[in-house]
Design a protein around this nucleic acid. Structure first.
Lengths: 179, 179
DNA sequence: GCCACATTAAGCATTCTGCTCATATATCTT
DNA sequence: AAGATATATGAGCAGAATGCTTAATGTGGC
């Protein structure tokens, strides 16, 4: 079952979808990320073995991304966040992407439709720092134009809680008897 | 020390910055998010107590965000991701934001400078679904215009690893003796 | 010198983990 | 209907980890 060869773009194929039970477990973990397996189990009214097995599968099947997603850049000394769209001459090549990813302040990089071809999310210590980073981006091969948008307020930082809640079904509360 | 009252916008004030040691711990956690305290401790050449204390502080001081950040939306059945900028009549009010946040597919919401006043990151099951969500956004009070950009490829999903590595200092490897 | 703070070390009762085996339920296939 | 596959559950067990406390040892600032 499930070849665990992962050619980097076929990830979707090995992703057995997360079902309602998985979602409930993930939600419980969301409220207490360091909860022990036992704690999760009786919070959800499940057997310890069940939680253990499903968590193991979730991790092994690559459903969970890296832990550093949880670290807020502001705490590291980067209170400024900006979105920078870039136009690329020709097509977006590997050299371009690699050059951009070498900049530590680039915390996310997307290929998009629309005006820009690339979108980088960067963090900076201050506006001067941001200016420096913008110039670095423009030095990447093929980058011909950039457009910077500053994030003024994170009304809702990235979170899939709402999706998990929908996925978990109507009965999300703890201690729900099976019937 | 450190009032744990958190009036939602004063978070920055209670954030004692993450130092190099914290960064090393977080990096180690990044490589194995479920590593035990003991495992982290001797991977980093630290005492168990140290790791335990710092992890506790990191969590209590709000440096770590929610766990659901680690869940990939694709695994939940939302393979499509888009960025939708919105122009708002008047100013961005609470009613507008609340209406938008009631849409589960909105996984992130930012107030930005530039053309649009609001930027929503949404996920969708397919293009038709995305169309439906776009219409929902336009129904929010004050939203007068929207512009959708589809994410074709996540070259680098959000990650602060690079920042942590810089923060951890030159000696990031395991088993580094104190001198 | 003295104070505050962080690291380290040791100890201890309780709890958790990883693992295995066996037993129910479902659900799907033939 | 019968069989097969997958999952949930329950129990058990040795070893490991946790949470907590106390105390010793730096380390830097005033």
């Amino acid at each position: 079952m499930l070849n665990v060869a992962r050619p980097c773009c076929v990830i979707l194929s090995i992703m057995r979808n997360v079902d309602a039970l998985d979602a409930r477990i993930l939600l419980a973990l969301d409220e207490d990320p360091r909860a022990t397996t036992v704690a999760l189990a009786d919070r959800l009214g499940l057997a310890r073995n069940t939680v253990q097995a499903r968590l193991k599968r979730l991790e092994e099947s690559g459903q969970l991304r890296e832990h550093s997603r949880r670290v807020a850049p502001a705490g590291l000394g980067y209170p400024l966040m900006a979105l920078i769209t870039m136009s690329i001459s020709q097509r977006v090549g590997k050299p371009t992407r690699e050059a951009i990813l070498r900049i530590p302040e680039v915390v996310e990089l997307l290929v998009t439709t629309g005006d820009g071809d690339l979108l980088a999310r960067v963090v900076a210590r201050d506006t001067e720092d941001l200016h420096r980073i913008t110039n670095l981006l423009l030095e990447a091969p093929g980058v011909v134009r950039s457009n910077t948008t500053i994030v003024l307020l994170e009304v809702q930082p990235f979170s899939v809680r709402s999706l998990l809640e929908r996925h978990a079904g109507p009965e999300t509360g703890p201690h729900r008897p099976t019937r």
